[in-house]
Amino acid sequence: MPRTEKQIKDGLTLVDAINEALAQEMERDSRVVCLGEDVGLNGGVFRVTEGLQKRFGPDRVIDSPLSESGIMGTSIGLAMAGMRPVPEIQFEGFMGPAYDQLVNHAARFRNRTRGSLTVPLTVRVPWGGGIHAPEFHSDSPEAIYIHNPGMKVVCASTPTDAKGLLLSAIRDPDPVIFFEPKRVYRSYREQVPEEEYTIPLGKAKVLAEGTDVTMITWGANVFQCLEAIDQLPEDLSVELIDLRTLNPLDWDTVCASAEKTGRVVIVQEAAKTCSLASEIMATIMERCFLNLKAPVQRVCGFDTIMPYAKLELDYLPSPKIIVEATEQVAAY
């Protein structure tokens, strides 16, 4: 689909970029089908699949029954029988019913059959808080899926990354969970290459190079961190890492930066305990112990249930808290 004038002038949103990636991949590979609740005629509740059914037909952009385990389980069958399904779970809070199929089946077929049956599917999931959505619509469950082996987990924060990472995910021979930060869906635009391109899974991006403090994050918090860096004193040199792929994680980039700065702040939306931030801290401690100049600091959600909209911004890491944490680590 040709880009609109606004898209040409102001760039693409995350929604636009994912939509374009899906369209280009469906064009390129007839095995790719999208399925999920309301993804067809309605174009998805976030309009990520807008126009795709009109273009590719209802047999390739499929309005499925309201049935998360069904969506995930049939996608496994589709994938095993030679298709490249891209199911959507409408919100991360609805992944519960699909959990069994995802973790116990999609993630295990290759291993349990010693490679004779494989499940190349990419499940797209709108993820995270910050848009004042109802309950069960704002969670950050990535740690659960990182903890379980056999799947890859991606969280793209920018339109350009989203397009390239999604194309890599769909072409990947293994199941991939593709988390899409809702808060970024329409809040940020940038110029995105029109042609198809891939960004390798498992590679973090250093958004800003620095020498004093390493800031590690993913998803919508990339923008909170950028804001925090703007507010920090100019003579504090911050290195900002956007992980992009959460499993497999780019430990080389993380540890090289931690070794260089000796001071690390990890920022995530998810609750603190047993989270990805915990794992990053542990690994930095294991591998970079002698380089550390300060205890690694975490800025996380709290170990509470994600509050409803009114308290949402009190729960989520804010630039102000990130600034405080960074200053503490820098001054230690």
Binding site: I76, G77, A79, A81, P85, Q101, N104
Partner: peptide, 25 residues
Amino acid sequence: VTPIAIPIGTQMLHATGMAWAFKMR
């Protein structure tokens, strides 16, 4: 054949997806 399925009932969705793929193709 797919492997022996230990958890109860999960394989029916895989079968449905496979049959669906054959229909699509």
